[in-house]
């Protein structure tokens, strides 16, 4: 017992430290001290230099090689060029918390947004100024039809995101649910194609069709559960598990009730 104690204490200590470290937000945002007194574009440029350039390079040129680029603080960061991605992609990545990543190799997923709203607007304006790119799309779910949206969603989106937008899997990656996205973010994602998602052009999904898709995504946030319990809206797997767990126990109970024990 005595011999076990020291390793146990060490293990618990390490776990506690790991827990605290894990609970911490990703490394802090570096902010200029005079945020309110500079112009929006200047603020965007300063925030970019402090928080984005280590991966995306000076003035959004991207870092594709392993070489440490000038002005990146010596970090051998790697990230794509942001020239020409426009306000559309920048707004999506920043407002969903996909960016900034705490580690260049990390996969983007939805997390706490670290920038304030004026900071995001400044950064989006700065990234948009780097090169001609698509603006933030305008979307009007009220103009769309939920039933048409359901058909289009099934055709274009449900393969990965499942029919009630609960998310799922593609080989090598997790497909996020679309439950928290605003209509604008859904439209941005469709046109941008973040991370492994394909992007969809006007040729594939027109703006009117996009309105319908967004209308359906909004409707899917509160699905009409006629059965009473959606079980996560994940379809036949949890439904089958419930059937086995509940019906199985009920059947065994019934057997015990009507059965007669034979004494050997």
């Amino acid at each position: 017992m005595r011999r076990l104690r020291l390793p146990l204490v060490l293990l618990l200590g390490a776990l506690a430290i790991a827990g605290i470290a894990h609970g911490q937000p990703p490394s802090g945002i570096s902010r200029p001290s005079n945020e309110t007194s500079v112009s929006q574009l200047e603020l965007g440029a300063e925030l970019y230099a402090g928080n984005c350039a280590s991966c995306h390079g000076v003035a959004g040129r991207g870092i594709v090689s392993n070489m440490a680029h000038q002005g990146t603080g010596g970090i051998r960061g790697r990230g794509p060029s942001l020239r020409g991605v426009g306000a559309q992609a920048a707004d999506l990545y920043l407002r969903t918390g996909f960016m900034p990543l705490s580690n260049p190799g990390e996969r983007p997923y939805r997390r706490r947004v670290l920038f304030s709203d004026p900071e995001i607007r400044a950064l989006v304006a700065y990234v948009a100024s780097l090169g001609p790119g698509p603006p933030i799309p305008r979307v009007d779910p009220a103009a769309g039809s939920v039933s048409e949206g359901f058909q289009l969603f099934t055709e274009h989106c449900a393969g990965c995101h499942q029919s009630v937008a609960e998310g799922g899997y593609v080989t090598d990656a997790r497909v996020p649910p679309i439950k928290q996205d605003t209509p604008t973010q859904v439209a941005e994602a469709v046109r941008t194609g973040p991370y492994l998602m394909p992007k969809f052009s006007q040729r594939q999904i027109s703006d009117a069709e996009l309105n319908s898709i967004v209308a359906y995504v909004q409707a899917s946030k509160h699905p009409d559960d006629r059965g009473g319990w959606g079980i996560g809206h994940l379809g036949p797997v949890p439904e089958g598990m419930i059937a086995w767990a509940v019906a199985g126990i009920a059947l065994v109970g019934l057997c015990v009730l009507i059965g007669e024990r034979v004494k050997a």
Binding site: G105, V170, P198
Partner: peptide, 26 residues
């Protein structure tokens, strides 16, 4: 085969692949 994954940043992300949603044949 209704899924297509494409890398946003090719040096890090998985390479392009067509994926079948039924049993994840890639």
């Amino acid at each position: 085969v209704a899924l297509y994954r494409k890398p946003t940043f090719a040096p890090i992300d998985p390479r392009p692949a067509l994926v079948c949603p039924c049993h994840y044949s890639t």
